[in-house]
């Protein structure tokens, strides 16, 4: 079980990772990105979805697996509408003109969403690996559109193999400067493998 000092240290690392992710996303979308201070908390695996919102809410999520010196799984998760707006914004950047998302085939919008997730998550990871002095390889991203509860089953099943508590490193990014009434937010969730968590805590000198 992790103590408060360790959770704080992980939070600081997540803060650096999120800063890097926000910078990368800002460059991709040519928009200002606002970031929240990350949360690191221990959550019961039986109540993950309730902890983060409405279990039945539809979300768009991008999953990647990172291997190498610091092994972990990462998910970039957004309310479905926010994911749609994010893709529209990206397509507008790429094509120079506004394209309503429902006029674009889903495989194209999914690959745009995967690209956003990939850039956010790999920038997050880059700064952690730089801090640790480790090398990493990141998998091709996987995309899902589904109920929050179903998506978080992935997290529950990873931690469920080890016990009943999940270490949730969770941080929120928001795109600024949208027209009134619109918002885009997204959460980064990091799930370090047990060995990698040990490595991180040793490096931070909190173990």
């Amino acid at each position: 079980m992790l103590n408060d000092k360790q959770l704080d240290a992980i939070k600081e690392v997540a803060n650096i990772g999120t800063g890097n992710a926000a910078t990368a996303l800002s460059g991709l979308l040519s928009s200002m990105i606002h970031m929240d201070v990350p949360e690191t908390e221990l959550v019961s695996i039986y109540e993950l979805a309730e902890h983060y919102g409405d279990p039945l809410q539809t979300v768009g999520a991008v999953f990647v697996r990172s291997t190498g010196g610091f092994q972990c799984s990462l998910i970039f998760i957004q309310p479905e509408d926010d994911a749609g707006l994010m893709v529209e914004l990206l397509l507008k950047q790429q094509f120079g003109t506004y394209i309503p998302i429902n006029e674009v085939p889903q495989d194209l919008t999914d690959s745009a969403l995967a690209e956003v997730g990939n850039i956010v998550l790999s920038s997050f990871l880059n700064s952690i690996n730089m801090l640790l002095g480790t090398q990493h390889q990141i998998s091709v991203p996987g995309v899902a559109h589904d109920m929050l509860s179903s998506v978080l089953d992935v997290v529950a099943s990873i931690y469920g193999q080890m016990g009943e508590t999940a270490l949730m490193v969770n941080t929120e990014l928001k795109v600024d400067g949208l027209s009134e009434g619109k918002k885009i937010s997204g959460h980064i969730i990091m799930i370090p493998d047990p060995d990698s968590l040990g490595l991180l805590l040793r490096k931070l000198k909190v173990i």
Partner: peptide, 23 residues
Amino acid sequence: LGMADLMVVNAPVKLVTLGLGSC
């Protein structure tokens, strides 16, 4: 029923589980 819940009850009843992914 939430995650990892298990229950046996007499009729009449409606048993519900929300948002099963890999579960």
